[in-house]
Computed example of a mutant assay.
Amino acid sequence: MSITLHHHPFSRAAGTLWALEELGCPYELEYVDLQAGSHKQAEFKGLNAMGKLPTLVDGELVVTEAAAIALYLGDRYGLGELAPTPDDPARGTYLRWSLYAPSVIEPGCLAKAASWEFKAGSAGWGTYEEMLDTIEAAIGDGPWLLGERFSMADVIFGGTVRWMLDFGMLDKRPAFVAYADRLSERPAAKRATQINDRIRDERGLNG
């Protein structure tokens, strides 16, 4: 077993766990005690200088940043299935929405929540309203970002939409809620939720 995910259920690693479950490849979880500051210790920062989760180790390779990890896993273990091949016309759309999540949705929602003052033309995420319309257009008729084909882009983009809805940082448009509900019903998403819940219980993180 070569894949190790450094994980905490209250981090973005919870979504990486879902990606691994979608792939069905064997992996191990290495619990990182965020409350104790383990992620900022020298040993862990030797893997990830930012001291962040998720951090994935696959053999000798270390991959960080949630979207990058999911894209790597899709190409390495799900190419042609969860990840379109480079010559597949869907590849461009797949990459577009995978990278839209961390580069637009996350900062756009944070800017809205924190009432940042900025010029929309100078910020990579534009206006909050434009972002909402773009998310809705990306979902379209669904059920997935690539139509009938579920992909790792749905894990990245959809996982971000689910998270932002859960924390009240994204308007609950009907299309968003329906998309999030479809994602939550996926067997791999349910398994990941159960694993994250179990770890929270075992580590006493719920109280």
Rank of each mutant, 00 (worst) to 15 (best):
129 E>T: 13
177 V>Q: 01
159 G>M: 04
178 A>S: 07
122 S>L: 14
164 M>Q: 12
124 G>C: 11
81 E>H: 14
8 H>K: 07
148 E>L: 03
113 A>K: 09
185 E>F: 09
99 L>I: 14
15 G>F: 01
68 A>L: 03
70 A>D: 11
190 K>Q: 13
97 W>T: 08
87 D>I: 12
131 M>S: 08
169 M>D: 04
22 E>S: 00
114 A>R: 15
35 Q>C: 12
132 L>E: 15
126 G>E: 06
72 Y>H: 10
106 E>M: 11
123 A>H: 05
189 A>S: 14
161 V>D: 03
84 P>I: 00
187 P>V: 10
82 L>D: 06
156 I>V: 13
138 A>F: 01
134 T>M: 08
176 F>S: 07
134 T>P: 00
131 M>V: 04
179 Y>M: 05
139 I>Y: 01
77 Y>R: 11
68 A>G: 10
64 T>Q: 15
23 L>M: 13
175 A>T: 14
61 L>S: 09
112 K>L: 14
158 G>R: 00
168 G>I: 05
70 A>H: 09
18 W>M: 12
154 D>V: 03
102 P>Y: 05
113 A>S: 10
123 A>F: 09
99 L>D: 14
81 E>I: 00
206 N>H: 08
80 G>M: 07
189 A>M: 10
104 V>G: 02
201 D>E: 15
185 E>P: 05
158 G>Y: 01
108 G>L: 07
38 S>K: 15
101 A>H: 12
